[in-house]
Amino acid sequence: MSEFNTCLKTQSDIDAVNAISAFLALDDMPQPGSAPVDLVIHAGNAILETAHAACKAALEANCPLVFSGGIGHSTTLLVESVRAENLLPEESLENRSEAEIFGALASQVWGFPKEKLILETRSTNCGENAIFTKALLSELGQKARTIILFQDPAMQLRTFVTFQKAWKEASCEAVFYSCPTFVPRLQIQDGITTYASELPSGLWSPERFLSLIMGEIPRLRDDENGYGPCGRGFIPHVDVPDEIEMMYQHVREILKNHETTKNRVLT
Rank of each mutant, 00 (worst) to 15 (best):
W167Y: 13
A19G: 07
L149R: 12
P241W: 14
A19E: 12
A106S: 14
G127I: 02
T124Y: 09
E253Q: 14
V17M: 02
A22R: 08
G70R: 08
S2F: 13
K256A: 01
P218C: 09
P206G: 03
S205D: 09
L149F: 12
A130Q: 00
A84G: 10
S107P: 08
L88G: 09
Q164A: 05
N263Q: 14
I118E: 02
R219M: 12
V109W: 09
I213T: 05
L24P: 00
D28K: 08
E3Y: 04
E207T: 10
N257T: 14
V183N: 01
P200D: 01
N263H: 06
T193C: 15
N62E: 15
L117I: 04
F160E: 02
L220V: 11
L39E: 03
T10G: 04
L186W: 00
S123T: 09
V265P: 01
I235W: 11
Q189Y: 12
Q156K: 09
V82A: 10
L105R: 10
H258M: 06
L140P: 01
V183W: 00
V40N: 01
G226N: 05
P184F: 02
P64A: 06
T75P: 01
E80D: 15
V40R: 02
I20S: 07
L93D: 11
D152N: 05
A35M: 13
L65G: 15
P30G: 13
R252V: 08
